[in-house]
Amino acid sequence: MLYNETDEYAMLSSVDFITPVVDDPYIYGQIAAANALSDIFAMGGVAKSALNLLMWDSTHFDVKVANAILKGGLDKIAESGALLLGGHTIKDMEQKYGLSVNGIVHKDRIWRNNTAQEGDVLVLTKPIGSGILTTAIKAKMLSNQDEVVQSMAMLNLYAMQVAQEYEIHACTDITGFGLIGHALEMCRANKAKKPHSYLRDFTEDSPYDKSILFYTMQIPLFENARELSQMGIVPGGSYENKNALCFQVRIETQIQDDIFYYDTQTSGGLLFALPFSQAKSFVYDLRKAGITCANIIGEVVPKREKAIILG
């Protein structure tokens, strides 16, 4: 992304940290950093600097583990093009790691999460179901972790760079509130044009001025996620999402289980809303850039009785 000194830019700031989702400390550091950096990319911005946030469980892990976590984070910060400026470490009873990130974006090119337009097509860049798979990893029930680990560690930077060539009306990253929770942000009335909103605002009378129709058969899902969910290997946060949000959802198709769409994600993909005429070309360019699971998964439709329709 090229910048002109005469242009005006907005400063972006974000912070996020997570508990371990894999056993390998270096990979955990990579995933945590990719997860934290994603908020900047979801607004169309470029990450410029980062600060480490390390809550170190020194009772159970020695300094070599802490160094491996920080090395994983540093490698992802460097990959993003940002600079690590320092950070803060404290002892904690539970291991946590993440980043405080600063970035910039042209003031006229900020992507917001509630400015989707009727007729827009939705494109998702990563599969869903990582919450289910990381729960299986913790339970020692997932033998092949490569697909989900590589996806979580992949920076959303590359999808953002491809999207710069398209007319993006709205964007959000899919993380803790799951696909449905973050899609609800896109349904909100955009009068205030706030870049972020919170699920607790989605009460029965919560204002939304459009709905989203998901094509459930086209939503990419991690391998084994369906089988594991049928065994009850589902994180508590996914059930909490469903309990909080299901009143805004209508199911109009035959599906065995809908928990995937509420599944709490770590370092999930970007969800883009853009004109129908550009969507197929966008997916083609994403896949050409190595984002192989990118797919059209739905559309923005006029307001219906429910904000989200699973079709």
Results as ranks from 00 to 15, higher is better:
residue 2 L to F: 05
residue 7 D to W: 05
residue 8 E to D: 14
residue 9 Y to D: 08
residue 17 F to E: 01
residue 18 I to P: 05
residue 25 P to M: 06
residue 33 A to H: 08
residue 38 S to H: 01
residue 39 D to S: 15
residue 45 G to Q: 00
residue 55 M to Q: 07
residue 56 W to Q: 11
residue 56 W to S: 11
residue 56 W to Y: 15
residue 60 H to S: 14
residue 62 D to L: 06
residue 63 V to E: 13
residue 66 A to C: 09
residue 68 A to W: 00
residue 69 I to W: 06
residue 71 K to G: 07
residue 76 K to Y: 08
residue 80 S to P: 07
residue 80 S to W: 00
residue 83 L to Q: 11
residue 84 L to E: 13
residue 85 L to G: 01
residue 89 T to E: 08
residue 92 D to Y: 14
residue 92 D to M: 09
residue 94 E to I: 09
residue 96 K to I: 05
residue 100 S to K: 14
residue 100 S to Y: 14
residue 100 S to F: 13
residue 104 I to V: 14
residue 106 H to M: 11
residue 108 D to W: 07
residue 109 R to Y: 09
residue 120 D to S: 04
residue 123 V to F: 07
residue 126 K to H: 10
residue 127 P to C: 08
residue 131 G to W: 01
residue 131 G to K: 01
residue 131 G to P: 03
residue 140 K to M: 01
residue 140 K to A: 11
residue 156 N to R: 04
residue 160 M to C: 11
residue 160 M to N: 13
residue 165 E to L: 10
residue 172 T to C: 10
residue 179 L to F: 09
residue 180 I to S: 09
residue 192 A to T: 07
residue 203 T to L: 09
residue 203 T to D: 07
residue 218 Q to N: 13
residue 222 F to Y: 15
residue 225 A to F: 10
residue 226 R to P: 00
residue 237 G to C: 05
residue 241 N to Q: 07
residue 243 N to F: 08
residue 249 V to C: 09
residue 256 Q to F: 02
residue 257 D to L: 06
residue 258 D to S: 12
residue 268 G to Y: 07
residue 270 L to F: 09
residue 270 L to G: 02
residue 276 F to R: 10
residue 277 S to K: 14
residue 285 D to K: 10
residue 294 A to S: 13
residue 298 G to P: 10
residue 306 K to R: 13
residue 311 G to H: 11
